[in-house]
Design a binder for these strands. Structure first.
Lengths: 373, 373
DNA sequence: TACGATGCCTAAACCGGTTTAGTTCGCGAG
DNA sequence: CTCGCGAACTAAACCGGTTTAGGCATCGTA
């Protein structure tokens, strides 16, 4: 009556063959006659045999797991919709493969490195996802040294042995700039993320290139850490200037939402006095007032593609990059024509209450679930 | 020159003892003389021996991992700051123990169950965290059947063999209601989360109890799915009534933020015409306009406590509940005295633009990183 | 003196798979 | 008839730990 889980040895005994042959049969390997194979399979079925992942892990030296390490303040990451969508996408690929995702959230870069070292020491994972790439990212040589395969979200700034899964966001930045230019804006500012981060710098560069191309040589750029707090601070700085911008392009949605609030607080009307754009296509962007123009990228697809690529790279050793559809602008109510009159100084705090057509719940284009990598 | 990773057998040979004795020495078990022990240890040190997690996993039948399954729309969870903070808290306990967190994000309950079954089949984890408890939660009997230890975030509604880590949020609800009552509000509505979810129902009940206690017998309650979209819809319903509430208590911050936006959109001034409170103490609540009164709970601590409890429960088999400090109200600018005049019908869309003192960046009380379980 | 208890240690089994080195057999070619 | 060869299969090693059974001194005690 002992319902011990049957092992491969039980199957072998029951089928009257050796352990090894059972292993061959179960793994569809040649060297087993069709009749024997099907007999073994049916016996395994009858006995309710299930492979022991741990035993397999030991003999194949495989973890059947991939790792993701996120180094962020818990507060900040909480607001960032990027990761959950990416994780969902990763999951979609891993689950059918019988693999899992090991997630680690750490506060600072030193812990991050320790985590990778622990992964390596314990052979916890067969590969890792690299997000938030930095210049001369120390993780790339580290992983090389540790012998852990990886895939990068975006193209790294330094030579990398790992495949990259690229979702271009510069095009989205350009679209927004063009959109604002078309609306008549000339004083356009950018509240960028950390320039330490590749995507932060890339967005900034794209912004500067696009504005220059539009004949604005010296568009204003502020650097932040991607947090809502920093976004609010940047907005205050911008709006306190003698000649405040008429449009601000924030590098992510939380900052844009914080910027929106600063405008409200100052009585600056959005979009009449100030156009604001976010970046990420987060869900929340649809439910703020006014609804937020943003740039949406399919983070779920990004995660899936990265998982797929990483698994292939592990299996074959090959490494070729993957290009995903670029992020797309989603125009909503927070951007509109620039005021044609004088420079819009912060109006008296008694400015009219904002009003606008009911924001439509049907999203203009892409379903928004974006991030910023 | 072959830098093969040394195994316990190498250590044994090098120290001139048997494999078994090395194992004993390395695990501080009795039966090894002090001199031999230290010799073995120093040999292991010299050889740079590191235990093989996989081998240990196989022989000890342990995964050295804990699991967390989140069943949510990727969009929705992205906005929810609860999980990232909880995960960070869990990590803080697991990392020093050499354990990891396996995370799974699934879309619907059937996938959720499949994930638990896969965990069991592969013995992927030594235990799991149960969040978002429901009435007669099917996961509790399932995990019992699968023999997976667990810890619940909050006290389950049905008999449970698992320890619970409780962070009372009813007190926070009561505080908010009292706060609003003190400000003179009488028409207070609650936009609750799904009543399917225990914490959704509990908050609603706490709200109703508190309002009744204050002499308001039939306070209005709307049920939602905790999403920002639903929060916006609920706010529209409430504000479209002939006698709209003067205060709304939302069951989480994203809904409250969406509610705030609906008010803006309608020209309803917050807090002059309408007081709004959130629930969660998310980071974002500090950067919306007006800054959001909310209820903050320490989700990081919650995660840590849960991890601690789960590990203890796994080790000892015992299971005793843990009580954490209750969630606390954080009063900000979105709540104020009720208008003493007539029923505040939605003012003409030309209502005055809102203005208020600069929201102070220093948080009133607790550092906000909360969730809602 | 003899006995059992204790401390230290070894050999071997065990966890549950995979993989390699043979072995046996049947068959076609020389 | 014999040799070679490939297909089917077995036995055993292997992955790298843990754990059990037992051996051998040494010790205190009757």
């Amino acid at each position: 009556m002992t319902a011990r889980k049957p092992t491969i040895a039980d199957v072998a005994r029951s089928a009257g063959v050796s352990k090894g042959l059972v292993s061959f049969a179960l793994n569809d390997r040649p060297g087993v006659s069709p009749e024997t194979r099907s007999r073994i399979l049916s016996v395994a079925e009858d006995l309710g045999w299930q492979p022991s992942l741990r035993a397999r892990a030991l003999s194949t030296r495989t973890a059947y797991a991939l790792g993701l390490v996120i180094a962020r303040e818990p507060d900040v990451i909480g607001v960032d919709p990027f990761f959950s969508a990416v994780i969902a996408g990763i999951e979609r690929v891993l689950a059918p493969e019988g693999r899992v995702l090991v997630l680690s959230v750490v506060a600072d870069p030193s812990e991050e490195i320790a985590t990778y070292r622990n992964f390596a020491r314990d052979s916890r994972v067969d590969g890792v996802f690299l997000t938030d790439l930095r210049y001369d990212d120390p993780r790339i040589p580290l992983l090389g040294e540790l012998g852990i395969p990886a895939v990068t979200f975006g193209r790294p700034g330094c030579p990398s042995p790992f495949p990259a899964v690229v979702l271009d966001d510069t095009e989205g930045i350009e679209s927004v700039v063009r959109h604002l230019i078309d609306l008549g804006h000339r004083r356009i500012a950018h509240v960028g993320g950390s320039a330490q981060l590749l995507h932060g710098a890339r967005r900034r560069d794209a912004f500067l290139a696009a504005t220059r191309a539009a004949g604005i040589p010296d568009a204003q750029v502020l650097e932040t850490d991607f947090s809502a707090a920093a976004g609010a601070a940047a907005a205050r700085v911008l709006l306190s200037q003698p000649e405040p911008p008429t449009a601000i392009l924030f590098a992510n949605d939380p900052m844009a939402i914080a910027g929106l609030s600063v405008a409200h607080e100052r009585g600056v009307r959005v979009p009449e006095d100030l156009s604001i754009s976010g970046f990420d296509g987060s869900d929340m962007s649809r439910y703020v007032y006014p609804t937020l123009t943003t740039v949406s990228s399919d983070a779920v697809a990004w995660g899936s593609a990265a998982a797929q690529t990483l698994l292939e790279s592990i299996a074959s050793g090959a490494s070729s990059d993957v290009e995903l559809p670029a992020a797309r602008i989603v125009v909503r109510d927070s951007t509109s024509a620039a005021r044609s009159d004088v420079a819009p100084r912060p109006p008296h705090p008694t400015g009219d209450g904002p009003l606008s057509p009911t924001p439509d719940p049907r999203t203009p284009t892409t379903r928004a679930a974006g991030g910023h990598r």
